[in-house]
Each structure stands twice: as structure tokens, then as C-alpha cells.
């Protein structure tokens, strides 16, 4: 954990920290906005897991495809979906990145090839396999990456998708965010083999376990994996070991875990550790940190303003988009 890789610059460190801070500040504000009733439905926040989203996005190109879960705000922001349309989506406004029809669990964006926001656990994995198949058949060097929690590993779709991607040597990154709890069920209460990485061996899939709280480690692992997939050598499973610092959703009283456990993990939080490392390497001052924080908060404030001012979709448009609309030239 200590020390920084050779050639690591202040600029690079600030960039990674800035990206993670944007997510943290956004999520914190979302919790408040939920309490105030501006965001409804289910809201799943990713505090503690920011390093995975930010680290992975550093190595994906604009033409690569992404599939995410219902805990996807961090992935969306790190991928480059603007904060205003993202928050407007959480509000259900027409200016939202999914036109307001999806909400927090269903963030979509064609411009960044962000294919959801899928709220059936494990349901996004076959999609990522298909996106990878499309890239392979089209002869590109693009990859598809899918995020999922360790709870999805118990789903048949995880096993079917790993097998299919390996069988066809598809450029798919399976990124498991192992935060130790599938909603409220601890890993050891749901898996006979809790070493998630080891499951890849059954499908002859390359795999690595990564400290998901360390953005630099995540980035390096993702870089290796993307290189492998782009070279046509098949899929990779990355088990990102992380922790969810907040509740599963806003309805979760967290009766299944000790407060002490949460506090222990908080000390290892990705923002805390990167900040400390940058400071001790002399690459970051407290003033720098405060400036980044102000910057993030200003972006969040602008997003709130955008979402608040945005229009509701007229009820007359209720039935739109059930089927594709004819493209008019």
C-alpha cells in the first residue's frame, strides 16, 4: 500500500483523486436528495467502491462497451456521463441520460456505450458476452466490460457467461466487485467456495484478485486484463476486493454487520488511502485536497440545479420508446 509506482506524477494522482471525489460527493448528495424526496425508488450508493470504477475506466477506450448493475453511478461518472443528466435521471426528468425512464438503477448512454444499469442480478453478464461477440465478429479490437457484485456469482448466468466467453475467446472483462455482502447475505453464507477468483479456473478463464480499495492496483490489473482481451486471448475475471461503506439501499437497517467492521474498512477507504499516499509522497497538500473538494462540490451543485430545473416528460409521451421509433432523416 505504501509508496507509488515509478514515474507516477502529481498530475496523475490528482486526476484519480478528483475522479473518486466527484463520485463520493455525488453519492453523498444523492443520499440527502433521497431523504428530501427528490430521488425515489431504490437508490444504491457506491461509497467505498470508487476505486474500481475510476481505475477500470482509465484503461478503457471510447469504443469499448460497458455493462453495469443497479449500483452504477460511479461507473457512469467515471465513464464520462455528465453529472447533470445523471442526476436528472435519478430525478426522473426528461433531460436524464435515459430520458428519465430508468431512474437510479437504469442509467444508459449511447455516446459512451454504457449499456445500463441492469437491475436483475447477473442479467448483464450475457449482454457483455454478446457485446464482446459483436466486436469479435466485426473484427474490431474493442472489448466489453461488465461489472457485477459477488452476489451474481451464485447466479447461473455468471457460470454460463464465463463458459461462453471462454469457449469463444471473446474480449470480455468480468469485473466482480466483491463487497462481501449480497444485500444482507455475507459471502460465507451464500458460497461454498468464497475465493471468487478460483471459480475462473473451471472455465479456463484468466483471473486475478485485486485490492479494490487501491485505485492504482485496480488500474494496473485492468490494464493487464484489457491488453489480454484486446490481443484476442479471451476473457478475464477480475475479483475486486472491496467494501460498501453505506447500506445496500436506502431501506437497509444493516442488521447483518457490525458497525466496528464498517469502521475498520472505512480506514482503508480508497479516498483515504490515496490521499494519504499522495500526501506522504509530497504530491498533494491539504490545500490541494480542499480545492479538489470544492471543485467536486461545485459540479454537484450545478448538477442539482440542472436536475431541478429540468422538465418532466409529458404524460402524453407515456407509451414512447416501448418500440423503436422510425428514424427520420
Amino acid at each position: 500500500m505504501s509508496g507509488l509506482p515509478g514515474g507516477f506524477t502529481r498530475e496523475r494522482g490528482l486526476h484519480l483523486l478528483r475522479e473518486m471525489l466527484r463520485i463520493r460527493e455525488f453519492e453523498d448528495r444523492c443520499a440527502e436528495l433521497y431523504g428530501a424526496g427528490h430521488i425515489r425508488g431504490f437508490l444504491h450508493l457506491c461509497d467505498g467502491e470508487e476505486a474500481i470504477a475510476v481505475g477500470v475506466m482509465q484503461v478503457l477506450g471510447p469504443d469499448d462497451a460497458l455493462v453495469s448493475t443497479y449500483r452504477e453511478h460511479g461507473h457512469a461518472l467515471a465513464r464520462g456521463i455528465a453529472m447533470g443528466p445523471l442526476l436528472a435521471e435519478l430525478y426522473g426528468k426528461r433531460a436524464g441520460c435515459s430520458g428519465g425512464r430508468g431512474g437510479s438503477m437504469h442509467v444508459f448512454d449511447a455516446a459512451t456505450r454504457f449499456y445500463g444499469g441492469n437491475a436483475i442480478v447477473g442479467g448483464g453478464l450475457p449482454l457483455a458476452v454478446g457485446l464482446g461477440l459483436a466486436e469479435k465478429l466485426r473484427g474490431t479490437r474493442n472489448v466489453s466490460a461488465c461489472f457485477f457484485g459477488e452476489g451474481a456469482v451464485a447466479e447461473g448466468e455468471f457460470h454460463e457467461s464465463m463458459n461462453l466467453a471462454a469457449l469463444w475467446r471473446l474480449p470480455v472483462l468480468f469485473i466482480c466487485e466483491n463487497n462481501l455482502y449480497a444485500m444482507g447475505t455475507a459471502l460465507a453464507r451464500s458460497e461454498s467456495q468464497t475465493d471468487i477468483r478460483s471459480k475462473a479456473a473451471a472455465y479456463d478463464v484468466r483471473a486475478a484478485a485485486v485490492d479494490g480499495m487501491d485505485v492504482l492496483a485496480v488500474e494496473q490489473a485492468a490494464r493487464d486484463a484489457v491488453e489480454h482481451a484486446r490481443a484476442g486471448r479471451g476473457p478475464v475475471l477480475l475479483e475486486m476486493r472491496t467494501y460498501r461503506l453505506r447500506a445496500h439501499s436506502m431501506f437497509d437497517a444493516q442488521l447483518y454487520r457490525d458497525k466496528a467492521e464498517v469502521e475498520e474498512w472505512r480506514k482503508r477507504g480508497p479516498l483515504t488511502t490515496l490521499t494519504a499516499r499522495l500526501k506522504s509522497a509530497g504530491l498533494l497538500t491539504e490545500d490541494d485536497f480542499q480545492a479538489l473538494l470544492r471543485e467536486a462540490d461545485a459540479e454537484v451543485a450545478a448538477a442539482v440545479e440542472f436536475a431541478t430545473a429540468a422538465d418532466w416528460e409529458p404524460v402524453a409521451d407515456l407509451a414512447r420508446h416501448v418500440y423503436a421509433e422510425a428514424v427520420t432523416a
Binding site: 462497451a65 455493462v67 449499456y115 442479467g123 453478464l125 450475457p126 449482454l127 457483455a128 458476452v129 454478446g130 457485446l131 464482446g132 461477440l133 459483436a134 466486436e135 465478429l137 466485426r138 466489453s144 447461473g156 448466468e157 454460463e160 457467461s161 463458459n163 461462453l164 469457449l167 469463444w168
Partner: peptide
């Protein structure tokens, strides 16, 4: 393409491939 007996994965992969332009 022959597929394994994985209806959910290969139907989902069909959906993904359609999204990917096929």
C-alpha cells in the same frame, strides 16, 4: 454457431450482439 446448453447466456448474448450492431 453451436452453443452450450445455456439458454439464458446465449439468448442474452444475442441481445448483446444486437446492441453491438449485429
Amino acid at each position: 454457431r453451436d452453443t452450450p446448453l445455456s439458454e439464458s447466456a446465449f439468448v442474452g448474448a444475442g441481445i448483446g450482439a444486437a446492441l453491438g450492431g449485429l
